[in-house]
């Protein structure tokens, strides 16, 4: 069964950034925050609420629609998979996503998009994130 990342319990988030660091490490083999597919930030500084920015697993994704090179393949369960060989680095997917879940890797010239592997959920100490069957 296909799985997608759910972020329903962000009220429990302590802002530890484990999800961000582990995503960058596992998926991009990098220690750099900006390589992560999931982003955590606060509204109103650390005293504010922690919020996440990550792919919503759309079934009819705007990012894929905007891609002129067919580099974003629809993923079973929702969201997309990046075909690095086809990507021309135009960044249309970045601006197409209204939840800002698509970032751009300036080193590889490829979009950074969550592929719902769930490693962030496994390393969330507060169970804010989960990988669920759809």
């Amino acid at each position: 069964m296909a799985k997608v990342l759910k972020t329903g319990d962000m009220a429990k988030c302590i802002g530890c950034f484990s999800c961000v660091l582990i995503c960058a490490a596992v998926n991009k083999k990098s220690h750099s925050l900006q390589k992560s597919c999931i982003k955590i930030r606060t509204y109103g500084g650390i005293a504010g609420k922690f919020v996440e920015t990550v792919c919503h697993a759309c079934h009819d994704p705007a990012c894929a629609e905007a891609c002129p090179a067919n580099a974003l393949l629809l993923r079973k369960g929702g969201g997309v998979l990046v075909d690095a060989n086809k990507c021309i680095g135009c960044r249309r997917c970045v601006s197409a996503c209204i939840v800002s879940a698509v970032d751009f890797d300036e080193d590889l010239k490829l979009p950074i998009i969550c592929h719902h592997c769930g490693v962030c959920a496994r390393y969330c100490p507060h169970d804010c994130l989960s990988l669920e069957d759809v």
């Binding site: 802002g15 530890c16 660091l21 650390i46 100490p125 507060h126």
Partner: peptide, 13 residues
């Protein structure tokens, strides 16, 4: 509420 330093899964704040 509890909060963590960035990179700490414990969250002692």
């Amino acid at each position: 509420r509890k909060v963590a330093c960035s990179g700490c899964p414990v969250g002692c704040i």
